[in-house]
Amino acid sequence: MANIALGRYVPYNSFIHRLDPRLKLFGLIVLMVGIFIKFVNVPMNFIVYGLIFILIAMMMMVSRIKFKTLFKQLKALWIMITFLLIINTIVPNSGAIAFSIGSWNIYWNAIFQTLYIVIRLVLMIALTMVLTSTTRPLDLTYAIEWYLLPFKVIRFPTHEIAMTISIALRFIPTLLDETYRIMKAQASRGVDFVSGKLSEKVRAIVSLIVPLFISAFQRSEELANAMEARGYNPSGKRTRYRVMKWRVPDSIALIFVVGLLSGIIVLAALKVDFVAIIGNLF
């Protein structure tokens, strides 16, 4: 239970940590688009996935994320993989048959489709982990707020939304601590959170959720009062303690990321096939 810290911000001072959160958010989206592009044939797809994985692994090394944490996060994927495989085999398919169980044909296509989805998922999770463990949640909301700025013209409450997100993020650990505390208090009253019949489990959860909600509401009221007492006005203009600054490394990283995506798009659009090229050389 205490391991929900996966993907949580880890304060190091690496190159990636120092990058501007706006760039990191943009980079995440760009690279994700790259992951979803399809190529000429199967081996080409795997080659590009491999290259992207090497890139992400390098980013993880630079930002000092342990591969162990990534694998821990992937554990839950097994259910999804089997589920996807089953769905993909049921859906009508064509092409070469890999093997058949009785009259049931399993096509190579189905297996590859499943593999693609799994690889994409793994890559996306790894990428997101790089972002969340190198960027403070608050910085991330500032970045989101910055991207939403153009919508201010149509009276979109940019600042309010950013504030709501940052408060929500800020209170996740607090509420988690609170949850553990209430769990312990109820365990002292004989609640068994681990085993028991379904009806007992439901009761156990009710005994946890009701106090949790009450204290969350209380907290939010206190927070609102404290903010008002300090003169908080959502529509007011304010400065920041930590100002986001765009520096040279950010520009370099931006060029790199955009270049990478264009490269991937070009490879896909021109239907480049590395395997064929290498084959032609010999």
Binding site: E178, R181, I182, A185, A187, S188, V206, S207, P211, I214
Partner: peptide, 20 residues
């Protein structure tokens, strides 16, 4: 271990948070 909690009753700080 649940049984032990019948022998030793523990009242937490701010126990009012356990009411539901």
């Amino acid at each position: 271990y649940n049984r032990l909690r019948k022998h030793v009753g523990l009242v937490f700080q701010f126990p009012e948070y356990q009411l539901f």
